[in-house]
Design a protein around this nucleic acid. Sequence first.
DNA 1: ATGTGACCCTGGATGC
DNA 2: TGCATCCAGGGTCACA
Length: 270
Amino acid sequence: MPELPEIEVTRLGLTPRLVGRNVDRVTARVHALRYPLPSALARKLGGQRLLAIRRRGKYLLFDFGTGHLLVHLGMSGSLRLVEKGQPATKHDHLDIGFDNEVLRLRDPRRFGAALWIEGDPMSHSLLAHLGAEPLERRFDAAALARALRDRRTAIKPALMDASIVVGVGNIYASESLHRAGIDPRLPAGRVTPARLAKLVRAIKSTLRNAIRAGGSSLRDFVACDGALGDFQTRHRVYGRAGEPCRTCGTTIKMLRQGNRTTYYCPRCQR
DNA sequence: ATGTGACCCTGGATGC
DNA sequence: TGCATCCAGGGTCACA
């Protein structure tokens, strides 16, 4: 589901509405998502002021000063801000109340996570080994080349490897490779420096444009105000097998890489 | 070490 | 308005 743009759209939407406010109530309706929910979360969060919402890769970090609530949306998760009293539906697993509003975590497939972290969250085992943040300046062609050196796996699954670069999932890996004109099957370590430079620019611009468009809404993703993203209407290859390439008109093809579907244009991507 | 594939779970689409 | 099958924005784990 959500990749970096969708997580960032969520963060940007929640920040002005929640930061500086105090938690007054917490309701958990399931015992566990991917991991057991934090025990006694109501006691940990009750009365705490939310200081900031940060993002690392596809993880959101809600900073409460005494600790961080880490949230991952898995494949099907969303975080919405709803009015207090709005009845929960089937897959609404966790509510964090702020006065008259409730931050509600919904996740039908339950691949997501909510954890309580005390101490430095970046040292947590889920975050410590993550790779580069693609929108940071230091993620450049040289950094990507170092991370991909001698890698024989194909470039597309390599882009989805969070120990190399975070936040690029199945949609944006295909989209970025199309924008860079790179065949998704090329061995990662054999892509030339010039083409890696183009790929880095493509990743950054694709992610930034997707954030600006409110993310991609395919099945489950909505922003915190319920708004649908618009970037899916601008996908150049993802989900477009059999349709003409928007650059050259060639029929978009799909293939299977590591149990995920890759979309590409056989003419534009070499 | 690196590279694969199975698996976690639910729901929607499709085909019979 | 059934039922079986396949597929889906992610990540972890066991195994070659």
